[in-house]
Amino acid sequence: MNIVVCIKQVPDAKDVRLDPETNTLSREGVKSVINPYDRHAMEEGVRLKEEFGGKVTVVSMGPPQARAILEEAISCGADDAILVSDRAFAGADTLATTYTLSQAIKKIGAVDLVICGKQATDGDTAQVGPGLAVRLDMAYVTCVQQVSTVTDKVVVLERMMDDGYDEVEVELPALLTVVKEVNTPRFPSIRGLRKARVADIPSYTAEDIGADVAMLGLGGSPTQVVKVFPPEPKGDRTILTGSVDEIAEKLAEIFRESSIGG
């Protein structure tokens, strides 16, 4: 089975700060990491390969630095990695992103299963998975919490719902987006790290993937992010820390003092 996993490099949420003057997100000096959901997508690809056979290729669209997350993917068991990188891709919204990724995936050849994270922690739209499936003319299932069986024709899985889960059987080729409950990502292995250090990771340009330049990057994006800002803080906030019992105790104390709840 030929599996493709899409992964995105995002700023480490633990590191993101607000610039107090401009009130915008400051990305300077912020560490870049694999989008947390994509770790689970990667693990699921590798797990399915180990259980049912096949090959896992990891794809990321991003600047040259995104090579780091592709190496990490190889150290965790992916067979191949492809960077999709070109100045022409800059400023892409989800429409342009799905077009670019679909062109790159088509170049890989016949793909049975594409796995994405449910959403990226920066853009947060959760549109890339479904959009990509439409462009690749595949069935798709979002919010997958467990994949139980894969044959050469179908995948049987559980889709997380607010009040439980749906059991779904979907025909291949298909695209899945996964939630964190789907698995526990593994650590890299020593052999994987050695392989990643010498891995040949090709970088595809717009020309390599035969893309229509008008559909790429800022120019191909009807949506443009004009400004990113945090909402105005509403009144005073206090964050209570400690064990559940300690927090409950502190909360009760605050209620007592402020005469809330009589």
Binding site: R186, F187, P188, S189, I190, R191, G192
Partner: peptide
């Protein structure tokens, strides 16, 4: 088991017998 999966048991085995 996590250490094993990450090849730490291969660390003390010679290469010709599947180690590192």
């Amino acid at each position: 088991e996590t250490l094993a999966k990450s090849d730490f048991f291969a660390l003390f085995v010679p290469e010709e017998f599947g180690g590192l």
